[in-house]
């Protein structure tokens, strides 16, 4: 267990006009840790994800990332090329809608191989080998490698997006409602897949979800947001089973138990 954080944010604030989206938000994330950000729509959780990942600049506050050599980088002060390099190597982003991330007119193999090629991989055979390996890891038949994503089901598309993201072995992956667009029947399979891959590869994850069940199954720690503020944070099962803040109690008590 290391005491050095992978990602740290302090006093993040951001307003959309008069509307506060983030108010004095602190976040710490350690290597290999899964952190869930929960809250209802409009609570600021997606804004937080975008600010943490450098896609959206905060009005105030800073986000620090520690690279593999131990150097700290102010994410919002990084030059654009460095941030982009980070996003296509050390970091990953999994969208709710896989079509936002995948190239729908490029084969499954090309989609998985793109990040490798962007990093300079120039051996077709080895790119293909890794693509096959990753398709298998996300439980897509290797025989589908030359098929277009548009022939894939929603669950397969989401798994393809995960393969495309994890192929470069990122240390940190941002996930925005990864199971949000899926039927309940395929959600469980994806959750299990994410959990086992992330655990095995020791990937740190910031997971935004409105589904408390998803947070409970995946996350070590949880952040509860309301109107741009962190109202409660802690161990996932403690926050969900013994919620202290009125809003968390409301959130937990609103969940239907199957």
């Amino acid at each position: 267990m290391t005491d050095e954080t992978l990602l740290s944010a302090r006093k993040l604030s951001l307003s959309y006009g008069m509307l506060p989206a983030l108010v004095d938000v602190d976040v710490d994330l350690w290597p290999g840790e899964m952190l869930a950000v929960v809250g209802e729509s409009g609570s600021g959780k997606t804004t937080l994800l975008n600010v943490l990942s450098g896609r959206l600049a905060p009005d105030a506050g800073a986000v620090w990332y520690r690279d593999p050599d131990g150097h700290l980088h102010d994410v919002h002060a990084m030059p654009a090329p460095a941030l982009r390099t980070l996003h296509r190597s050390d970091w990953g982003f999994v969208h709710q809608d896989p079509r936002q991330n995948l190239r729908m007119n490029v084969t499954a193999g090309g989609n998985v191989g793109e990040r490798l090629m962007a990093q300079g991989a120039r051996h077709y055979g080895s790119i293909r080998e890794q693509a096959i390996d990753w398709l298998t890891q996300v439980e897509i038949d290797a025989g589908r490698i030359d098929d277009m994503p548009r022939t894939f089901s929603g669950g397969m598309l989401q798994r393809l997006q995960i393969a495309r993201t994890l192929v470069t072995h990122p240390r940190l992956v941002f996930m925005d409602e990864p199971t949000g667009s899926l039927d309940v029947s395929v959600q469980a399979r994806l959750l299990d897949l994410i959990r086992s891959l992330v655990t095995r590869l020791n990937i740190a994850v910031v997971l935004v979800t409105h589904d408390i069940g998803v947070a409970r199954l995946l996350a070590h720690r949880i952040i509860v947001m309301q109107r741009g503020r962190v109202v409660e944070t802690g161990l996932t099962d403690q926050v969900l089973d013994d919620p202290q803040h009125p809003y968390t109690q409301l959130l937990v008590s609103s969940v239907l138990h199957a």
């Binding site: 296509r88 084969t107 090309g110 793109e114 090629m117 962007a118 990093q119 293909r128």
Partner: peptide, 19 residues
Amino acid sequence: HALADYGLMHVKLYEDIAR
């Protein structure tokens, strides 16, 4: 071009060989 991010061009070549 600004970031010399040309993975996509190689994706096109990859697709050619695959097909």
